[in-house]
């Protein structure tokens, strides 16, 4: 049994999601190798070699892999799978984009957003926005999975795997990178953050969204998230969206402000350790899953909360 984990990284650094997918791979049993596919991604490959329990790092480096576009990633990964029984990706936008392409090339039915591993061929995943949990057994000779990183503890450091350089595919490819607008934040990344402060439609405008949430997020050292309604209304950028079709988070503390709690939003945050909800509508469904519900207008409650946190020495 050998499992290949496709690393989540931005060339400069390895993302924590990789450690979590490695730990999922270890639950399947057997050897775990990590593929770092990128451009000038030496630092990410070095970091992958230090993950505890990794046998070998495969490092493919070239211009075609700079943005991990689906076509060259598939051209690289599909042939590599010959030596493996399973290929695991993080269920991030990169993994979700590439994994099904690899699976179809291998004539394998992929299993998406895996939250539980019950053996080498049996997996648990949420369906219907997390309102049902499906356990499936794969009959395919190879398994291709995307893994929900928040469902697994991160593998530790302390490994010293060898790094093997492999060639990057050189195309030609029919898709090309044009540009990106990546938001640079001074805050923690949403999916890996220990604390998240999220806002909903009740905030009413983009100005209000930032004015209310940012001081609280800064005070807590938290990432900022949003409900779909807030993103659709233009209060927050798309990469803030927490929910069924956005990001899944499971921080130690999730503070939902002015979020009613549609099932699609709950799907993205209900595994948080402690949930706080502040909403003036006491019937809001978010209260049913909150550990601490405060029926109050955010306009007064959030400044009070900031002052109380200050007083408490946070």
């Amino acid at each position: 049994m050998a499992v290949l984990v496709v690393a989540e990284h931005d060339n400069a650094s390895l993302k924590d999601a990789t450690h979590k997918v490695v730990s999922a791979a270890q639950k399947m049993g057997g050897d775990v190798d990590v593929l770092v596919a990128g451009h000038n991604a030496g630092a990410a490959a070095q970091a992958a070699a230090k993950i505890a329990g990794v046998r070998k790092v495969l490092h493919a480096d070239g211009a075609s892999l700079d943005h991990q576009i689906a076509e060259p990633m598939q051209a690289l990964i599909a042939p590599l799978t010959a030596g493996y029984d399973a290929v695991l990706f993080a269920a991030t936008t990169t993994g979700k984009n590439v994994a099904p392409r690899v699976a179809a090339k291998l004539d394998v039915m992929q299993i998406s957003g895996v939250t539980g591993i019950e053996g080498a061929d049996t997996f648990v995943r949420p369906i219907y926005a997390g309102n049902a949990m499906l356990t499936v057994k794969s009959r395919d000779p190879k398994k291709v999975l995307t893994v929900q990183p928040t469902a697994f503890a991160a593998a530790g450091e302390g490994g010293s795997a060898s790094i093997e350089t492999i060639p990057a595919p050189d195309g030609p490819f029919k898709s090309a990178f044009e540009r990106e607008e990546i938001v640079k934040l001074d805050r923690p990344e949403l999916t890996g953050a220990k604390r998240v402060v999220s806002g909903g439609r009740a905030l009413g405008s983009a100005e209000e969204f930032h004015r209310v949430l940012e001081p609280l997020a800064d005070k807590l050292g938290a990432a900022i998230g949003a409900s779909r309604a807030a993103v659709d209304a233009g209060y927050a950028p798309n990469d803030y969206q927490v929910g069924q079709t956005g990001k899944v988070v499971a921080p130690e503390l999730y503070v939902a402000i002015g979020i009613s709690g549609a099932i699609q939003h709950l799907a993205g945050m209900k595994d948080s350790k402690v949930i706080v909800a502040i909403n003036k509508d006491e019937e809001a469904p978010i209260f049913q899953i909150a550990d601490f519900g405060l029926v109050a207008d955010y306009k007064t409650a959030v400044p009070e909360l900031l002052a109380a946190l200050e007083k408490a020495g946070v």
Partner: peptide, 18 residues
């Protein structure tokens, strides 16, 4: 290609405290 082993309710979250 996949056999359904089972479909279950998700674990219930104990919430609702105010």
């Amino acid at each position: 290609r996949l056999a359904v082993v089972k479909v279950a309710e998700p674990p219930k979250r104990q919430g609702g405290a105010k």
